[in-house]
Structures are given as structure tokens and as C-alpha cells.
């Protein structure tokens, strides 16, 4: 039997970590773009548009990410598209991330004082101008800590894509376990790598939040 050193295991896991990082970035950036669109829909003046965004968010937050991955993986196939695992994984994660980011950002936009909307309207600004020049710059400041905090959920969410066969850190963990028969070491290392990815994000989110609170107290 071939002997595997810790370094052999770690090296293979780290190679797979690249895919976890890439998928997290794609999901976060794509989810941010779709989430921004959803945010505009969610605070639209039209009731039907608002309702659509509300139900979208409810649907994606009220069902397991794993089911969304399965549906993207098997569902797209129905339309005659050959779906590789990375596409299904990326698509489901983007849509899932968007629903959470839209809801987080809505809270930030709604926390902006009403007077700001009224003042900008009285200057003759249109809805988009109000958002662009008055509301979003202020909301952005509040939005940074929870958004960074949510990025941790995205990184952890990518672990589920191993189940539909996308080879990232978790899948690599399973593969390496099957080769080495050392589940304790392998999954321990996998957990530590995830921790190394997520903990800096969690910590910086906390620090940013504390800074923001201090800034607000000085008003």
C-alpha cells in the first residue's frame, strides 16, 4: 500500500481550495449584481414588482441550498442543455446569494432617514438619481459589515456543490479520504482550511461593525 504523508494530503487539498475560492468569488460578485437588481425591484414603487422580489427572496431563503443545486443541476437538463456541475453550482449559488444580499441591503436602504428621500425629491431628482447620489452612498457605509459577514456564508455554501459533483475542497476531502483511509486527518484539515478562509472575513466584519458603531456614537 502507498503511504501518504500529511504534506501529500494537504497539497492536494490546497490545490482544490483554488476552486472553492474561485466559486466563492463568482457567487459573491454575481450574487451581488443580481442582488442589486433585486434590491431595486424590492423597493420599487410598483406593488407587483415589489411582490415579485419579495416572493423570490422568500423562495430562495425558505428552501435548502442543496435542493436549489439539485434543481439547477437536473432542471436545466430538461431544456436540453447539458449542464456541467460547475455551471449548475455557479448558477444556484448566484441566485441564492442574491436573495440574501438583497434582503440585507434593503434593511440598509430603509434605515436611511425619510428626510433624505424627501430632500432629494425636492431638488427635482428622479428615483434613480436619488438612489445613485443620495441613498446608496449612505446605505453603502452601513451595508459593508453585514455584507462581509455574509461572504462567510457563501464560502461555506460552496461546500454543498461537492454533492452535485463539483470538485472543490469538500469533494477533494472525500476523494482523498477514499484514497488514504484517514478521515479524521483529512476532514480535520479540510475544516482548518475552511476556517482559514472564513475566519478573517468574520473577524473583519466584526471590526468594521465596531468601527461603524463608534462613528455613529460621535454624532
Amino acid at each position: 500500500m502507498i503511504e501518504f504523508s500529511i504534506w501529500d494530503i494537504l497539497r492536494n487539498l490546497l490545490l482544490a481550495t483554488r476552486w472553492t475560492i474561485l466559486l466563492s468569488l463568482v457567487s459573491f460578485v454575481g450574487g451581488g449584481a443580481v442582488g442589486l437588481l433585486l434590491l431595486f425591484l424590492r423597493i420599487s414603487k410598483r406593488k407587483a414588482v415589489r411582490a415579485f422580489a419579495k416572493y423570490y427572496i422568500e423562495l430562495f431563503q425558505g428552501t435548502p441550498l442543496l435542493m436549489q443545486l439539485f434543481l439547477a443541476f437536473f432542471g436545466l437538463g430538461l431544456f436540453g442543455i447539458d449542464v456541467p456541475a460547475w455551471l449548475a453550482a455557479g448558477l444556484a449559488l448566484v441566485l441564492w446569494t442574491a436573495s440574501f444580499l438583497a434582503e440585507i441591503w434593503r434593511g440598509c436602504v430603509e434605515s436611511i432617514a425619510r428626510g433624505q428621500w424627501e430632500a432629494s425629491a425636492s431638488l427635482g431628482m428622479g428615483r434613480l438619481q436619488q438612489m445613485r447620489y443620495v441613498i446608496l452612498p449612505q446605505a453603502l457605509k452601513i451595508a459593508v459589515p453585514p455584507t462581509v459577514g455574509f461572504s462567510v456564508q457563501v464560502v461555506k455554501g460552496t461546500a454543498l456543490t461537492s454533492i452535485i459533483g463539483f470538485v472543490e475542497l469538500s469533494k477533494a476531502g472525500t476523494v482523498v479520504t477514499n484514497a488514504t483511509f484517514q478521515p479524521f486527518t483529512v476532514y480535520g484539515l479540510v475544516a482548518l482550511i475552511y476556517f482559514a478562509l472564513c475566519w478573517p472575513l468574520s473577524k473583519s466584519s466584526q471590526i468594521l461593525e465596531r468601527k461603524l458603531n463608534v462613528a455613529h456614537r460621535n454624532h
Binding site: 461555506k156 469538500s170 475544516a191 472564513c198 468574520s202
Partner: peptide, 8 residues
């Protein structure tokens, strides 16, 4: 809090 549930 910083590792996926699946890995736990």
C-alpha cells in the same frame, strides 16, 4: 461558525 456544516 467558520466551517461548513457538511464538513462538521
Amino acid at each position: 461558525r467558520n466551517t461548513p456544516f457538511l464538513i462538521q
